[in-house]
Nucleic acid binder design. Structure first.
Length: 677
RNA sequence: GGCGAGGUAGCUCAGCUGGUUAGAGCGCGUGAUUCAUAAUCACGAGGUCGAGGGUUCAAGUCCCUCUCUCGCUACCA
């Protein structure tokens, strides 16, 4: 690899509409922090930037739900996450935010540069405008009648009743949710980044020059490049965000995906006057730590922006991780299925390193992984306490007992002693090699090998057995054990910084340079170590059960459907309801529509006729098992062509909380064509 | 359906350009040991490497088909 002069490390900007959880930590912040701490210990010039991503529609929606200003939302979560990260020990050089002045100026300037260079395409489209509120409406802010299923409160981007994704202009009788008025269609101008023009560049840069990227990252990029890149709108009509810095662009802001990654640049700017050195000098190695949901932005879109601007370097690597599950289920902010960092810090005070350790040991580097509290306990008790903590404790206790805390003078080293000491450098080399290749999980395992080495050394030499007969030999043994603990304090520093600090305190020494790892004379004979405490405590079953209980109650809350059931829709009149002609029919034939995942072609006896209906149920039913069943069917829905088949009606389904579908059927058999009212 | 990633011991994962009896950590069993938060150390049991074909003197490793998981994408009337 090229010899870089300095490193710029970014960690994905957490979205400021919720707290940080273990999934974020395991995928992004813990690996990034370990890597950065490692670089720092090696004396490398590195800065580590992050911050809150505070723009975008979801934040405005959350604000509206709570009846507050978006600013209140982002302030709340920015402060909360900033503090949680700091308390947890993620060592950002700066944790900034995209709502601040520097960022607004930077993002705005970045846009302006591209604009002046004539990079953007301009396109005019028609969008709804709320004349009362005086603004264009995001799709989410429009409700109306779904053209597909007739649901009266479909959103402009999606009908939650039938699940169809929509354009706001598809809705019948659209209403603004801001003012309740009927919006009017107006022309609106937007700017697009012509990603398609960079396709050749990316095919070369990623597929040829970046073969060293992780397979999951490389493969995902290949998938996108093969599908072809499309121009992407960089602006949108919204109040919350960074105004488009162009004449006549009132009410338009930069699309959040455009401004967010620029947040890395603004954060660097805030941090140092020398920011350009980190962003524009090819001797800087730029690395983005992200989760897999962010791959396309960091591997294609943001580099395209940087490339278009012209003066920036591109990322040298993007070590994206997969996702972490929790006790077998996907982590979900909305379902409160998560271990929140701020809560963990309160519930397990002083155990920051335990979580770091478990998340790193379980980091989803190659595929999604599962976090369980049982595993958390096991790793703490059987690895941190039993292997690492125990070795250190054994060494200390022996030192206190035999020498009153003074480092003894070693005698002549035996071959086995020399071999043990030489092993330290080998382990260090393994740790480095893994870290250099972003195999963080593996590197942690190697680091633990040093503690294993220590335990084995003590077991092999048995100082307690020969103290009476050969006290001189014991001095050497303890001396070497203590040198191992000292080396350990440096080697575990990137992974377990608090523990490393504690260990140094017990040893009564200053921080050791990474390059000194492997030395057998870190602690000088006669040096006093302090009366030690324990590095780790056992975690009892009760603490784990409490966490499981907490998750269990979350699960119950989620199942107690009130919390999850969608809100009641707007009132309708009896007449309106009676427009629906819903009947009971019998499924005569069923077959899966080829080349689709969900579609099933059904022939239904409606009592009036026999007709064909295409329905999105194939994921939950086999064709054979549903033939002969009675179902409810909306018969007067206007026909629609789906995959070349005319669908004449809609089968009514109930969607359970887990997303599975169930038929709405009569309690007892009735004649086909029976009317439902 | 298309594309991408993954499916290797009970669990979490290594196995590079195909080559001796498929590895590690944790868990499990047996033994040793007591300095240590019943911790440690040694040894051992456990895998038809998702399934089935094929190429090859030789395949976990290459090719084809199928299957399951995750993601992107199409589709959901």
């Amino acid at each position: 690899m090229k010899d870089y002069k300095r490193y710029l490390i970014t960690a994905a900007l957490p979205y400021a509409n919720g707290p940080v959880h273990i999934g974020h930590l395991a995928g992004v912040y813990v690996p990034a922090d370990i890597y950065v701490r490692y670089l720092r210990l090696k004396g490398i010039d590195v800065i580590f930037v992050c911050g809150s991503d505070e723009h975008g529609v979801p934040i405005t929606i959350k604000a509206r739900q709570e009846g507050v200003n978006p600013k209140e939302i982002v302030d709340r979560y920015h402060e909360m996450n900033k503090k949680a990260f700091a308390d947890f020990g993620i060592s950002f050089n700066i944790y900034s935010r995209t709502s601040n002045k520097t960022h607004h100026e930077t993002a705005s300037g970045f846009f302006k540069t591209l604009y002046d260079k004539g990079i953007f395409l301009e396109k005019t489209t028609k969008q709804y405008f709320d004349t009362e509120a005086g603004q264009f409406l995001a799709d989410r802010y429009i409700t109306g009648i779904c053209p597909i299923c007739g649901n009266a409160s479909a959103y402009g981007d999606q009908c939650e009743s039938c699940g169809t994704s929509l354009n706001a202009t598809d809705l019948k009788d659209p209403k603004s949710t801001l003012s309740g008025s009927t919006p009017e269609l107006r022309d609106t101008l937007h700017w697009f980044l012509p990603l398609d023009k960079y396709e050749d560049f990316f095919k070369n840069w990623i597929l040829k020059e970046n073969k060293h990227w992780k397979v999951n990252v490389y493969g995902q990029c290949k998938s996108w490049l093969n599908a072809g890149l499309q121009p992407r709108a960089v602006s949108r009509d919204l109040e919350w965000g960074i105004p488009v810095p162009v004449e006549g662009a009132d009410g338009k802001v930069l699309y959040v995906w455009f401004d967010a990654p620029i947040g890395y640049i603004s954060a660097t700017k805030e941090l140092t006057k020398d920011w350009e050195k980190y962003w524009k000098d090819p001797e800087t190695r730029l690395i983005h730590f992200i989760g897999k949901d962010n791959i396309v932005f960091h591997c294609i879109i943001f580099p395209a922006m940087l490339k278009a601007e012209g003066s920036y370097i591109l990322p040298e690597n993007v070590p994206a991780n997969e996702f972490l599950n929790l006790e077998g289920d996907k982590i979900s902010t909305s379902r409160n299925w998560a271990v929140w960092l701020h809560e963990y810090l309160e519930e397990f005070p002083g155990k920051e390193d335990v979580l770091r350790y478990v998340l790193c040991a379980n980091a989803p580097e190659t595929k999604d992984n599962d976090y369980t509290w049982k595993d958390f306990q096991t790793r703490n008790n059987n690895e941190l306490v039993a292997i690492l903590g125990n070795f250190v404790n054994r060494s200390f206790v022996l030192t206190q007992k035999y020498y009153n805390g003074l480092i003894p003078e070693p005698g002549k080293l035996l071959n086995s002693d020399k071999k043990t000491l030489a092993e330290i450098a080998v382990i260090k080399q393994s740790v480095e090699n893994s870290l250099d290749n972003f195999r963080i999980r593996e590197s942690l395992k190697y680091a633990m090998d040093l503690a294993r080495l220590g335990n084995k050394y003590l077991a092999d030499t048995e100082p307690w057995a020969i103290q009476k007969t050969d006290p001189e030999r014991v001095k050497t043994i303890i001396y070497i054990s203590l040198q191992i603990t000292a080396n350990l304090s440096a080697l575990i520093e990137p992974f377990l910084p608090n523990t490393a600090g504690k260990l140094r305190e017990y040893l009564n020494i200053e921080r050791i340079n990474w390059t000194d790892i492997g030395s057998d004379e870190i602690l000088k004979p006669g040096h006093h170590i302090k009366k030690p405490g324990l590095l780790f405590d056992k975690i009892e079953d009760a603490a784990i059960e409490a966490q499981l209980e907490k998750l269990n109650s979350t699960k119950k809350m989620n199942e107690g459907s009130e919390t999850n059931a969608p809100q009641q829709k707007d009132l309708i009149s009896y007449d309106e309801f009676m427009k629906n002609d819903i009947r009971i029919g019998t499924i005569l034939e069923a077959e899966k529509v080829p080349k689709t995942k969900k579609l099933m072609k059904l022939k239904i006896d409606t009592g009036i006729d026999q007709r064909t209906v295409v329905s999105g149920i194939a994921e939950y039913f086999e064709a054979e098992e549903i033939i002969g069943k009675q179902v409810s069917i909306l018969v007067n829905l206007e026909p629609r062509n789906i995959k070349g088949i005319e669908s004449q009606g809609m089968i009514l389904m109930a969607e359970d909380t887990d997303g599975s579908l169930k038929f709405i059927m009569p309690g007892d058999k009735v004649s086909n064509g029976s009317v439902i009212s």
